[in-house]
Design a protein around this nucleic acid. Structure first.
Ligand code: MN
Ligand code: MN
Ligand code: ZN
Ligand code: ZN
Lengths: 127, 127
DNA sequence: ATTTTATTGCAACACTGTTGCATTATTTGA
DNA sequence: TCAAATAATGCAACAGTGTTGCAATAAAAT
């Protein structure tokens, strides 16, 4: 099942690459000029994650956020072992700095990292 | 709005204190011998979190898990800055070891830590 | 051009968690 | 001890997020 190129997917990918924050489905919908079906957006995002173009963060608000993988992203598990910050005021989710030293007990295997902190970001606190 | 003592709440709290894993609403429901209304359980759990008796983890399956705070838990934010592991085979969520060195950029304030890793636990991998 | 099948849109669904409101039961304290 | 105040409960309805089924559409391959 090889992928096909569509305007729709291009639009979503471009959006994610231009945006410096991780975006929720809602946020993506809001920024797309041409309306795309909700379900289609979800399917596109899942495909992107599957293909390693994008990574998924589940924040403590229980929602999924999507961020384009960095250019230097090796697309391996460790590359996504970094901190995410969700500001409860502006509701933006940022990918922060490099890998965190997360160590599991012997015998455990990590398949996915989901490291998120919520609070208020610098910008919001300065008001 | 002071709290009142009820059998229902006792039952849930006892369950959480006896269980060594963080439990989901579903898991709690399954282990309660006397049936309690779904909504009541949710409300009880939210109260426990509010009162600092229990902490809430949102795993990357998007669901909430609840774990009794350790006896030595200071009930401050830092005390919950530890790793959680969800096994995708047995679906158990464990609270792991001590505080992780999570550093935020200057000017940010953390209100909640949600550090979760999913994968397979030792027990499941040994099969 | 024709065929193949990945992608889309729509409808319906599943799941988790919340809110409104009347009822019940724990506290308080007269 | 009893009555009043109100926290906790149960039920119904709702809200939000994400998924699945299926027919229609459109990209790619021949
Ligand atoms: Mn990230
Ligand atoms: Mn924990
Ligand atoms: Zn902010
Ligand atoms: Zn396991």
């Amino acid at each position: 099942m090889s992928r096909r190129n569509t305007k729709t997917q291009e639009a979503v990918l471009t959006l994610l690459r231009e945006e410096q924050y991780a975006m929720s489905h809602e946020g993506i919908t809001a920024k797309l000029e041409e309306p795309i079906d909700r379900v289609t957006i979800y399917r596109i995002l899942n495909r992107f994650v599957e293909d390693g173009l994008v990574h998924r963060i589940v924040a403590d608000d229980g929602r999924q956020y999507f961020a384009s993988c960095a250019k230097n992203c090796a697309h391996d598990l460790a590359a996504h072992n970094h901190l995410h910050f969700r500001c409860t005021s502006c509701d933006r989710v940022e990918c922060l700095q490099g890998p965190l030293g997360v160590e599991l007990p012997a015998g455990y295997r990590a398949d996915n990292y989901n490291i998120a902190v919520s609070g208020s970001c610098k910008e919001c606190r300065e008001e």
